[in-house]
Simulated scan of single mutants.
Amino acid sequence: MATTAARPNQGLTIGDLAERTGLAVSAIRFYETYGIVKPVRNAGGHRRYGRADIRRLSFALVAQRLGFSLTEIAGHLAPFPDHKALTSADWAGISEGFRARIDARIGELERLRDKLDGCIGCGCLSLERCALLNPDDRAAEKGAGPRYVIDAD
């Protein structure tokens, strides 16, 4: 049971925040190392979080599921004050920054899905003919061996 109501002016404990977000206490401390949340310390040296940190952590969880790194997520949150709730306009700005990357990823996944359907359908998995792994045998132009692994581009 959260004890948040007993301390409205002292902030949330790390346990309260864990309960509200579904994260383990250790995970919250990990997010702190990236600057996604920045607790203040009370007179006893204990971490205290603001209610806005619930939303910051929830945002980080969703953004991670979309493939964004914690460094990227922290970078998007960095311009905003640490202990203040972001406005709707702030969140819209962050969303706009993510939108192009998400749209590009959706396009990549759709192309992969479409090519993979054809590859599974024919079953050849030929490195000379496969449009997915090596369209038009382009890897031969880069030399012998596993060029896609060696060159990584």
Score class of each variant (00 low, 15 high):
A104E: 15
N9I: 00
L70W: 06
Q10Y: 05
E19P: 05
G15M: 07
H76D: 12
E72Q: 15
Q10C: 04
H83K: 04
E72K: 14
N9V: 01
G11Q: 11
D82G: 07
G67C: 02
G45I: 06
G35N: 11
N42G: 10
A100M: 03
A60K: 00
S69G: 15
F30E: 03
N9F: 07
R56T: 03
F68S: 04
I14D: 12
G35C: 10
W91V: 08
S88D: 15
G15E: 14
A43V: 10
F68Q: 02
R41F: 02
R41S: 04
R65G: 13
F80N: 01
A89Q: 08
F30M: 12
G93D: 08
I28F: 06
T71P: 00
N42I: 02
Q64Y: 00
G67L: 01
S58A: 08
A52H: 11
I73N: 05
G35K: 14
G75I: 14
A24K: 11
L57D: 09
R48H: 09
L23H: 03
L86H: 07
H46M: 02
R56N: 03
S58K: 10
A52T: 06
G75Q: 13
V62K: 08
F30A: 13
G50L: 08
L23S: 06
W91D: 08
L61A: 06
F30S: 07
V37C: 12
D82A: 15
Y34M: 03
A104H: 10
S26T: 11
A100S: 11
W91P: 07
S26D: 13
G11C: 09
P39Q: 13
I102H: 00
I102C: 04
Y31M: 06
S58G: 13
P79W: 04
L70A: 06
S88L: 15
R101C: 00
